[in-house]
C-alpha cells in the first residue's frame, strides 16, 4: 500500500491501481453523506479532481493520483456513502485506474512515512 499527501491510499495489482482514502481522512471528514464518482473509461491526469465527497460539514474532493484511465468505480458508495466511514481502507475504495508506468508509484509514501506525515 502506498499513500499520497492528499490522504489517499493506493493499492497496485498489475497495471491497475485501486484508490481510496485513509482512515485518518475519513475521520477528519466526518459522516460522509454523498459521493460522486467519475465515469468509467475516462482518461484522467494526475491532480484532476475526479471524486466529490461530502460530509455533513463540507464538500471535498479526491484527485487522480496518477495519469491513466478509470476502469472501475465503486457504485456501492453512491448508494451507501457511510461506507467511507465504516470501512475506508476496504469496502470503500473509490475507483480503479489503469496506469502506464508503475514506477510512478515509487514516489509515494509507505505506511511508516504516511504515519509520520499525519503525526502518528
Amino acid at each position: 500500500m502506498k499513500y499520497t499527501e492528499d490522504h489517499e491510499w493506493l493499492s497496485l495489482d498489475g497495471d491497475i491501481v485501486t484508490v481510496g482514502i485513509t482512515e485518518y481522512a475519513a475521520t477528519q471528514l466526518g459522516d460522509v453523506v454523498f459521493v460522486e464518482l467519475p465515469e468509467i473509461e475516462t482518461q484522467v491526469a494526475r491532480g484532476d479532481e475526479i471524486v466529490v465527497i461530502e460530509s455533513v460539514k463540507a464538500a471535498s474532493d479526491i484527485v487522480a493520483p496518477l495519469d491513466g484511465e478509470i476502469v472501475e468505480i465503486n457504485e456501492a458508495l453512491v448508494d451507501n456513502p457511510a461506507l467511507v466511514n465504516d470501512d475506508p481502507t476496504g469496502a470503500a475504495w473509490f475507483f480503479k485506474i489503469k496506469i502506464e508506468d508503475d514506477a510512478a508509484l515509487d514516489e509515494f509514501m509507505d505506511e511508516d512515512e504516511y504515519k509520520d506525515h499525519i503525526g502518528e
Partner: peptide, 28 residues
C-alpha cells in the same frame, strides 16, 4: 461551507472546502 464562513475546517483537515460557487479551492 462557503467562501464566507466555514465550520469544520481545522488545520489538519485533509480536504479543502469548496468555495461558494462550487469550484474548488486549493486543497490539502
Amino acid at each position: 461551507i462557503s467562501g464566507e464562513r466555514t465550520e469544520g475546517a481545522s488545520q489538519t483537515r485533509p480536504f479543502a472546502a469548496k468555495n461558494d460557487a462550487g469550484r474548488l479551492r486549493a486543497w490539502k
